[in-house]
Amino acid sequence: MADAAVTSRTGARRGAPSTTPAPRRRRGGVLRHWREYLAIAPFYVLFLAFGLVPLLYAVQLSTISWDGLADPVFVGLDQFRRVLFGGEFGVALVNTVVIFFMGQVPVVIGALVAAVLLSRRGLRGAGVYQTLFFLPQVTSVVAIAVVFQSLFSQSYGIVNRLLSMVGIGPVPWLESAWGVKVVIALMIIWQTTGYFMVIFLAGLAAIDPALYEAATLDGAGGVQRFFHITLPMLRPTIIFVLVTGTISGFQLFTQPQVLLNGGTGPFDSGLTMMYLQVRYLGSSGSGTAVFPDLGYAAAIGWAIFVVLVVLAAVNAAVLRRNRRL
């Protein structure tokens, strides 16, 4: 039914509905469909201009050294050498991975647990909980950073003042290398858990309730039902969440940039790969203290690209080996 074709106006006037043009009329057919092509053209034009051309441009950019003003200098593969051996990218990669495990992993587990609890039969207030957990998703990262900076400020932050009431001394959340990572991870957890929760809820709703009923009659407890029915049935949803969570987690930029006011935190502990790239772009708002080099920034972009491709391959391999999760 979905595939039944609708011919354009000329076809309709002749009263010839739903028939594909005969092969010999093919050339005329393409022209006859100009409205359809025009309707979908914007995407392809924009993708060509701002998706494909930039990729080619990025190849060229990564072979030069250029601050954006003076004449660019051709440096061959030096920018890639700088990425590999300059040290900075390694620091940024490690930071990204550590923050990923501190933030994204609890997000997935928390979202799954929340979704399982909220999909219980006859639970009152489920809609209110869902709304509340999803709400942080609509706030901007800048607003979240403003609030979290205040919550975790060393001397006046409410978190430290509450901790001092139970005798724990002021914790240097934003002044220590690990503290910065904890706060960034908490921002990610707070903002994105509700989003993944809703995805899990949709996945859970698609599981046949009869499966649970049968398992209960066989004497399976809640934990057993979770591991033997819920998890296997949720496999497609879990794969989707892992893939999208990895891609966004490894392109983390806004949270550290805003939380650290354009700096990189103690011992560069908030410097992620994307953040490193944007710093070397040296544009107006980035407030960087580094000497801009567009070529180096482009090479960092390729390095991020490679990391994501490797991760995708690892993901695929792990999932293939572990079919039962």
Binding site: G51, P54, A58, L61, M274, A297, A298
Partner: peptide, 8 residues
């Protein structure tokens, strides 16, 4: 991934 296209 969109990240590689930022500079260009």
């Amino acid at each position: 991934p969109t990240g590689v296209a930022i500079v260009p």
